[in-house]
Design a binder for these strands. Sequence first.
DNA 1: ACATAAAATGACCCATCGGTAATATACCGG
DNA 2: CCGGTATATTACCGATGGGTCATTTTATGT
Lengths: 219, 219
Amino acid sequence: MDGQAGVAAEPWIPFEDRRRARGRKKEAVLRMAVRLFLENGVHRTSLAEVAAALNVTKPALYNYFRSKDEILFECCRLGREMYEAGIADIAARNGSGLEKLRALIRSYAKVITQDFGQCLVRFDDRELSPAARADIRRAKRRIDEAFRTEIARGIADGSIRPCEPKVAGFVITGALNGIGTWYSPDGPLSVDEIADAFVERLVDGLAVRRAPAAKQAGP
Amino acid sequence: MDGQAGVAAEPWIPFEDRRRARGRKKEAVLRMAVRLFLENGVHRTSLAEVAAALNVTKPALYNYFRSKDEILFECCRLGREMYEAGIADIAARNGSGLEKLRALIRSYAKVITQDFGQCLVRFDDRELSPAARADIRRAKRRIDEAFRTEIARGIADGSIRPCEPKVAGFVITGALNGIGTWYSPDGPLSVDEIADAFVERLVDGLAVRRAPAAKQAGP
DNA sequence: ACATAAAATGACCCATCGGTAATATACCGG
DNA sequence: CCGGTATATTACCGATGGGTCATTTTATGT
């Protein structure tokens, strides 16, 4: 029943500013909902709680959304758009496969440290209506494919070691998704520090580099 | 209402072999429960469904478990023990930090491809009672620490590149946890192939190796 | 066979929660 | 000042599902 310090109940507070636009209220609902969903789990967060956190009662929410499903989906949709914006931006650039892969990792890390960005990963697909679930699944697939594409490109252009792009992509997205489960804005690491560390570990690995297998002089 | 092909309703089937030991029935309940929990989500799986899948009615389960919480926790506990067994085994060996880290990755990958092993990762902590949650959280922490310990050891003995063990550990466990979300025993990759690929990608990275900064002869 | 205990069942209780309806209140243009 | 619209509220409905209980069924030891 607490912990959403940063998220104000703005649009309602007292009686005055009530003339706020519809869109802003929808947005406020979503921001509060996603916060509570992430904090307590979707199915353990009732709409009454979301409403109460906004100084409103449950039926008021139904002026803006048709169902809890729709609220959840809108949260996921916002997250989806953040991922897709990053991917589209990077796809338009040019550079080696490895360079673009680095950019993808940084972009993904940025998104997954934000509330809406975590929706795609932390919430269960099956909570959504079939149509919404299909939409989100498609989005996840596109994200996976973005990684695989750049990995394959990198292998082709010689910047990335030959490997199975699918598995390599799973390693990367898995590691990045994990961030959503432990990251806290109050923690010791900034988003950029995390992104850099992940890029470094995923790209360069953990083992100490030995000289390439022969070809060069010996001891 | 399907998909648990491999899990038989053994101990009850018809009227005959009913003289099965209590322990075997508890085990059967857990195997079926974890299967359904993973397939449909914990809170969307009613005990009535679990019971029905075993050709029994819901109250029968209460002869063996006190609550749904307890069933869920027992599943997690079995998973926990699998991780801990692997970790204890590896801790007792000797070898460089890197070698032991490799072994840890393989061990973890094996466990997370099994039903009980997925419990720690796929189920939400908050579904459990406070005591159970504390137990599981402790277990996760110990697992994280096992990885960090070997990474630190590897840095000390020169087998692993200097880096922050905590973040490096998160990269590894995150990537491994991801396996639980996409692995299927019917898929194209065997558990061993997955484990090998993950070891390789995490240890050696993705970038093509350039010769170490100098020290050796150049062109 | 029969008594006894274990195991399983059908019927039921109750809390929670998504969603709806009828009603009240504030805001707007005319 | 009025009437219509949007927005919010109180009260309620119905479904779901965890958990309990009295009762019956089944297995076992003598």
